[in-house]
Amino acid sequence: MFFYWPAAEALFQSVFIQDPFGASREFVGLENFRELFGDPLYLDSFRITAVFSVAVTAIGLALSLALAYFADRAIRGALLFRTLLIVPYAVAPAIAGVLWMFLFNPTLGIVAHWLGAMGVAWNHVLDGTQAMILVVVAAVWKQISYNFVFFLAGLQSIPKSLIEAAAIDGAGAWRTFRSVIFPLLSPTTFFLLVINVVYAFIETFAIIDAATGGGPAKATEVLVYKVYNDGFKGLDIGSSAAQSVVLIVILLVLTFVQFRYVERRVRY
């Protein structure tokens, strides 16, 4: 119900061009889609989305796994670390975006100041690559606590005896991690992979909106941000709905691929 109704509504709206009040509406068939795919800037948005999603998912998972691994092994202050790491999850996405924007603000931001001292001229207001780095950092930071909690729970459910057995067999920390811990964590990792891809695709628009507004030029305009911007700010319901349909299809395909191919490698 909560998925099919909005999805059907989006599909329905996507074949019309209409004014926001719904007073005049013209059936246009697939024209909204044709217009989208005929627009090189929209096609480029796919590339931007791919870069962004892969970066957010990969960095987010790797970083939170590392943090969870060390938090799991930490003896003193473990509780404090864990609490501190979970805090970002309580922060609203728009606030997260604003927070990072201030840290990286070309003139006032402390991070930008450090980068300047290291010889990096930071100006994400005009530099597309730097803007992308900024939104990736903010999006990763926001999601790290969620991943961390699941990884930590996964790590704590691994029987100590297995790790001790590996140690007796002469395995070092890295070898133990690679051959024992990581495979045992694979269900958690897979679950988080699916969640993180969806997160990067769907839930990051508030962060992007607050941090860069999709700019400079279109350097950080991912697909979902364009849906939001055209539909909500631009009130172009037809085009926005068509973009939603495209996004839903992509997500269905991605999730299917993940379950079909990646899940095979998961050992429960």
Partner: peptide, 21 residues
């Protein structure tokens, strides 16, 4: 009409221009 989008377009092209592209 669609002034919100047109403003975005102006800003995008201005940014591209100011970045020297």
């Amino acid at each position: 009409g669609n002034m919100a989008q047109i403003r975005d377009i102006v800003h995008e092209e201005m940014e591209t221009m100011l970045a020297g592209k």
